[in-house]
Amino acid sequence: MTNININTNDLIKGWDRNTIASKIANDLPHSSYVNLGIGMPELVSQYIKEDREIIYHSENGLLGMGPSPNENEIDLDLINAGKKPVTILPGGSFCHHADSFSMIRGGHIDYCVLGAMEISVKGDLANWSTGKGIPAVGGAMDLVAGAKNVFVMTQHLTKEGRPKLVQKCTLPLTGAAVVSRIYSDYAVLNITDDGFKVIELNENITIEYLQSVTDGNIYQ
């Protein structure tokens, strides 16, 4: 592992999270069944264009999830994976947990979008445990093992300035060779046999700079 550690004051500013979310939204095809992870990935649903309809799955037995309710419409029996109140859209349905995870594990979810702590050049993902505190995995391991396409939405570097895209993950894995594509603030990259293949590069960034903040082979 190379020892890249960037002074965070020197970092070039990349895309903001809304821009990253809109790039992911553009890549989700019409009529896809999609599971958005808790946190930043939830933004993606705000950027779906009107030329397509996407159906959202929530792991706790909800297919056809809608946006947050108004204050006076909150129902604490209608929540999402983050245990926040949501709504159900016309055409939606409820199911029990084993059926909900059959949708995931049985390969019926077309895309899932997750956050990451580390992604290796082989597509290994670490996003559930820092190795400290109470270990809690939730549905992350099922999603990466079962969804047809696993998209990662992440900052390119950690808050401390270390690369998240690495030769080999040091944190406990969520899954091995599971990530299809990474959307960072610096680039959109596919996982390939030859390394991280750049699909789109942030307009302020050179390929040399991207390589300098990535611990793993980058190519175009």
Partner: peptide, 26 residues
Amino acid sequence: PQGTLAERIRAAGSGIPGFYTATGVG
């Protein structure tokens, strides 16, 4: 893992003593 938890529970209720899954491999 949450799906493995659900499936282990369903399996017990269905007379299935165990099953193979990709979840958690590696």
